[in-house]
């Protein structure tokens, strides 16, 4: 009898130890999450893993460089290179556009010549998007600061109004804007950097009138009417 009680005690103590360790782990994880955002439960997309745990980590600690490799310690640290750069909240934690415009970096535009000025093209494209989401504003000027026309046209984007089907799903999977945004250029977690032109009050009112909410609250409206007819 006594040995049976002891046997159960061992079980209970072991379980407590396991639970205790898990709670400690969870608390410390939550702590790192809290340090980054006020509400880790409500980050942009819960299907994405939590944001980077260490920003601009030195090569030997970044998880991709092998600390055993003799060259790893010879590499420059990102944080070392970024000390004078304007900060941003995502990607490399660097506002690349701002430091380029401010002349803090002067990257070559052409392989053959260090002094060639970029060929800039100042055309802003506004893409109307579904629902109440603000429209997308695409500035060619900022993109031609870095890129050549041939980088995007015609392989990624057909230069014709209405010819390009773009969705956030495609972008998240690395197509269209996602070829760069989400890999090298600023990631898509900051919606308003692209969705920058809010819908007008009239458009928002028209949307509300078309929605089911407006219909169910008004009994005289025909419920079977197609919601999207213009």
């Amino acid at each position: 009898m006594k040995s049976r009680i002891q046997f159960h005690l061992v079980h209970v103590m072991a379980l407590c130890a396991v639970l205790g360790l898990l709670v400690v782990g969870a608390i410390s994880l939550a702590g790192t999450g809290l340090a980054q955002s006020k509400s880790p439960a409500n980050t942009f997309n819960r299907l994405l893993k939590s944001p980077t745990t260490a920003k601009n980590a030195p090569p030997a600690e970044d998880g991709v460089h092998d600390p055993q490799n003799p060259g790893t310690t010879m590499l420059q640290w990102p944080s070392e290179a970024f000390t004078e750069f304007d900060k941003s909240s995502d990607g490399n934690q660097v506002d690349w556009m701002s430091i380029l415009r401010a002349g803090k970096i002067s990257p070559w535009f052409e392989f053959e010549s260090q002094t060639t000025e970029p060929f800039l093209f100042d055309l802003v494209i506004v893409r109307e998007v579904k629902g109440s989401m603000p429209n997308v504003v695409f500035p060619h000027e900022a993109h031609t600061q870095w890129l050549d026309c041939s980088n995007c046209h015609d392989e990624i984007f057909i230069p014709e109004k209405g010819a390009n089907q773009i969705s956030m799903a495609a972008i998240l999977l690395g197509q269209k804007c996602g070829v760069c945004h989400g890999r090298v250029a600023f990631p898509v977690t900051d919606c308003r950097r692209c969705h920058a032109q809010p819908k007008t009050p009239e458009e928002l009112r028209a949307l509300a009138e078309k929605s089911n909410w407006a219909k169910t609250s008004n009994t005289s409206t025909d419920q079977t009417a197609a919601p999207d007819k213009k």
Binding site: K49, T52, T53, A54, V64, N92, V184
Partner: peptide, 8 residues
Amino acid sequence: NEAKAEYG
């Protein structure tokens, strides 16, 4: 660890 890799 991989989540600490520098962006890009």
